[in-house]
């Protein structure tokens, strides 16, 4: 699904925000990317999504090299990749249904969509996605009146309505309180299983990464520090990863859970 070789990405004024020799993610994998702030988690996801163009190297998504591909081909790949943002990015003043239908914009008839007209298939997929995230009751509620957790559910439904082969989630739970965070992660992983998509998410909390992902990649200063199955990630791994940052334990005691 994703193949990276000697990839180098600059982001903003930061050279080498990402520098990865080799990374392969297979179809259907459930990957968590963790690391301290500024370690390149978002840069990795944004490069895969095509928001950032790498300087050099090879970045293959769904068998297509994004660096050499034409804009039209990149758009086609892009359309099959759902993205969930930390800040939800829902359109205000539009309802839950309208927001989820926005996931269909790249596929539906472009001109009709400008007048709010969507095909039966679009509506069916949107409805199914909304049911799946459990917001059937709020179908016609305005998105800006929802709580944070509900907003992220709408954003997930929007990505699902896109019929993605891969879902990227960039710190999907960082602006949610712990209870909602687990709830949303459960939802995302359920959806990943149900739709058999590939899932790559960046997370700030190692214990959540180990619990919800099957593979954990540790990034530090744009480099891969470890890449292990979730079950074999140890405290030593994390201490190395967060060295110089606050120490985050794998199984936080209740006292430190809030800080994590």
């Amino acid at each position: 699904m994703v193949r990276i070789e000697y990839l180098q990405v600059n982001y903003g004024r930061r050279a080498n925000a990402l520098s990865i020799d080799r990374l392969e993610i297979d179809k259907g994998e459930r990957v968590a990317v963790i690391g301290p702030s500024g370690s390149g988690k978002s840069t990795l996801l944004r490069s895969i999504k095509g928001y950032i163009r790498p300087v050099h190297g090879k970045l293959e998504v769904m068998g297509i090299d994004l660096i050499s591909a034409s804009a039209a081909v990149r758009r086609r790949v892009n359309r099959r990749v759902g993205f969930v943002f930390q800040q939800f990015h829902l359109a205000p003043r539009l309802t839950v249904l309208q927001n989820v239908l926005c996931g269909r914009l790249g596929i539906t008839n472009r001109w009709r969509s400008l007048f709010g007209l969507f095909s039966e298939k679009d509506c069916r997929l949107a409805w199914e996605a909304i049911c799946e995230v459990g917001l059937r009751e709020q179908l016609h509620q305005r998105a800006d009146t929802l709580s944070g957790g509900e907003k992220q559910r709408v954003a997930v439904a929007r990505a699902v309505a896109q019929e993605p082969s891969m879902i990227l989630a960039d710190e999907p739970v960082s602006s949610l309180d712990p209870a909602w965070a687990e709830d949303v992660l459960e939802l995302i992983t359920e959806i990943q299983t149900h739709h058999q998509t590939t899932l790559i998410m960046s997370l700030h909390q190692p214990h959540l990464a180990r619990r919800f992902a099957s593979r954990v990649i540790g990034l530090q200063s744009g480099r891969v520090v470890f890449d292990e199955p979730a079950s074999s990630v140890t405290d030593a791994h994390l201490e190395e990863l967060y060295r110089g940052n606050e120490i985050i334990r794998l199984n936080p005691s209740p006292a430190s859970a809030g800080a994590a």
Binding site: G82, F85, H89
Partner: peptide
């Protein structure tokens, strides 16, 4: 961000 989100869905 909302522009980026629509872009992500493939909107023109």
């Amino acid at each position: 961000g909302i522009w980026e989100a629509m872009d992500s869905a493939g909107a023109n």
